[in-house]
């Protein structure tokens, strides 16, 4: 199983989600470098027009070409109250980095979200390994 990288702000929602996943994960703090393929879990901070969705520390992290090259997929959280911009950061990162949006959940996620992501990641990495050269 490859890695998980996540960003969590002061609300702690993503941190609580990752804690419940119970998988090894690296939190983006300051200068963070990764060395193996990973899935990114990130909250979304869009305004009502889709601007500003990706948190600045996540932007800094992905602006590093080495970090970006190891990104395999993105899981984004948010709030459906934002309408079409729900979990918009996932879409932006997917488009920018050429990776799929794997899953979206609200706030700190439900137990079903945790189970689905755990199961989904296992399948995803198995599949990634089988198509790897």
């Amino acid at each position: 199983m490859a890695g998980l990288v996540y960003y969590s702000s002061g609300s702690g929602n993503t941190q609580r989600f990752v804690d419940r996943l119970g998988l090894p994960a690296t939190r983006i703090l300051g200068e963070t470098r990764v060395t193996e393929p990973y899935v990114l879990i990130t909250p979304s901070y869009s305004d009502g027009y889709g601007n500003g969705a990706v948190a600045k520390p996540v932007i800094r992290f992905l602006n590093d070409p080495a970090n970006r090259s190891l990104l395999c997929g993105v899981i984004a959280s948010g709030n459906r109250n934002f309408g079409e911009y729900f979990a918009h950061a996932g879409k932006i990162i997917a488009a920018k980095c050429g990776v799929p949006v794997l899953y979206r959940f609200e706030l700190s996620g439900t137990d079903e979200d945790v189970a689905r992501v755990r199961q989904g990641l296992e399948t995803f990495w198995t599949r990634q390994r089988s198509i790897a050269p």
Binding site: R80, G83, V101, L102, R116, F124
Partner: peptide
Amino acid sequence: LSPNSDENHDFFS
């Protein structure tokens, strides 16, 4: 509540 948010477009769903 969230129109046009591409329901079920994610991989794990």
